[in-house]
Design a protein around this nucleic acid. Structure first.
Lengths: 90, 90
DNA sequence: ACAATACTTAGACAATTGTATAAATGTCTG
DNA sequence: CAGACATTTATACAATTGTCTAAGTATTGT
């Protein structure tokens, strides 16, 4: 399990971004306007999430659309279930 | 979901400690001797894990025994499954 | 080609964190 | 109670991180 993954999840702004993306895919701008911090700061967070492979991007003209990489989340769930959760009541 | 929880999981030494504890309960000393860092540093990590409620302690004479708090891990799994994982193949 | 829009990257800085050493606390045994 | 052992707490410091502003890249429309 990648170190970058857990480091990415450690920041509350990034977790909020992931929750927004769990509702639907969004562009960088749509995400950024939801936060009280600078546009560039959100972009930095998006870069961290992408580096952890938690999100993927697709360019759409001038926009860049972000979406969750659900595969990685499944791996996270598996990581916790197999190692730490009690086996018979997850 | 507590911020302290994700911050606690962000450090690789702490995740290693949790994996050791998933095998069996151990005293602070038994844990510390497994790592190349100072005893006091491991103790600090244990404090962080305890602050995040990921582990619990029990004094046994001079020793302090650490154990996983599996309840919290179940909450983590639930958090990821409900929000991020695709619903039908976790 | 130029300007506007959308977004990222670079550089700087303050806050947080991981580690170390040293001192303190708690427990047992003689 | 003194000394040994187990562990935590205090303090300091270097490394990492989150944020900002400014500059750069990419795309679209005129």
């Amino acid at each position: 399990m990648e170190d970058s993954l857990f480091r990415a999840l450690a920041d509350p702004t990034r977790r909020k971004i992931l929750e927004l993306l769990s509702e639907k895919d969004r562009t960088a701008g749509e995400i950024a306007e939801r936060f009280p911090i600078a546009f560039a700061s959100v972009s930095h967070h998006l870069g961290v999430l992408k580096g952890a492979d938690l999100v993927a991007t697709e360019r759409e003209g001038q926009f860049i659309r972000y979406r969750l990489n659900t595969t990685v989340f499944q791996e996270v769930v598996r990581y916790f279930m197999t190692r730490f959760s009690e086996k018979n009541n997850a």
